[in-house]
Nucleic acid binder design. Structure first.
Lengths: 167, 167
DNA sequence: CAAAACTAGTTGACATCGTCCATTACATTT
DNA sequence: AAATGTAATGGACGATGTCAACTAGTTTTG
């Protein structure tokens, strides 16, 4: 479909002139490399806020805030992470006094997660910052932004659901 | 713009019913979490091929193949990575006999990178596999896929260029 | 020509992350 | 009561990205 300029090779000195080969039309490449840029940007905005570094903390903060009593495994699934990884994230957040873990009343294996006062406050701060992170994509129009979000959101939910159904 | 259902909280047991709060309309969230899923998928496809794990190896392979004599710092910029990180990636590829490093004839500080025979062969294999990775997004139509790629590609190049221009 | 400033690449230290595996505790099924 | 399955924890491991310090070569400046 796309223009496959697969012919000549040439040495380059500046990134601007680089040819990415197949990667030029590969969504996963852009997701993977933009992930680095986006994470750096978010980390900078969240600097000093107890939730910097990693997608897990922010996701956990919002999910617990929105669904008090939620269990760790649900957060793991939504963040596309391992249960043990989320466990460690929660350890850190508990240590920082953001999260409280209680045994679930119905199921003894399960933990129920709640935000502390500090957690609620932080969630509000972070919510504002996350909204501001839209600025990183300042050269996209609102409709373009909404378009990409819609398409990626669909993929996201398909994957999340397919992993919750089976294995 | 988007439906902000910011009111009620409720406990959930399944991921399917989860409300992501602001993240639901946040591009960086989907990029960050899809990055994990996409990387897992690619790693599985590349299993055993000397380039599994990490975006760096694949990017380096294609860039060197396309631009023989390219320098490490250009690859670093294109992969949105640190120069030192790329250096380590190249160490590994050199150890695996995929890449050759030569001193640049014009500038003594600079290295010129080339693929070995094995590198060329691998690049061809990986090119095919990367094309197949389109299957991961099988529930997107070709036009939707092209749409997202176009939009993300623009952002990608803006960031790459802005980082090459200044600091 | 000499000193200063800059650039390319390497190296080591460090924190984080994701994965794998074993273990404990509890539930549900039979 | 026994077996199977699920929730969470903990340790070990490898890979990754970042930062700062260092070497070496180049360009600029006076």
């Amino acid at each position: 479909m796309a223009a496959e300029s697969h012919a000549k090779q040439s040495t380059v000195t500046r990134v601007d002139d680089v040819d990415l080969d197949v990667l030029e039309d590969t969504l996963s490449f852009f997701i993977r490399s933009l992930n680095l840029a986006v994470s750096r940007d978010l980390d900078a905005r969240l600097d000093g806020l107890d939730v910097a570094r990693g997608t897990g903390k922010v996701t956990a903060l919002f999910l617990i805030g929105r669904h008090p009593g939620i269990r760790p495994s649900v957060i793991a699934a939504a963040a596309m992470m391992d249960r043990s990884a989320i466990g460690r994230v929660l350890d850190g957040m508990e240590r920082h006094g953001l999260v409280r873990r209680e045994p679930d009343s119905e199921d003894g294996r399960v933990q129920a997660l709640f935000l502390t006062e500090a957690g609620e406050t932080l969630a509000a701060e972070v919510r504002a910052i996350v909204r501001e992170s839209r600025a990183f994509f300042h050269d996209m129009s609102d409709s373009e932004y909404a378009q990409v979000v819609d398409l990626l959101r669909n993929i996201y939910w398909r994957i999340v659901k397919s992993h919750s159904g089976r294995g």
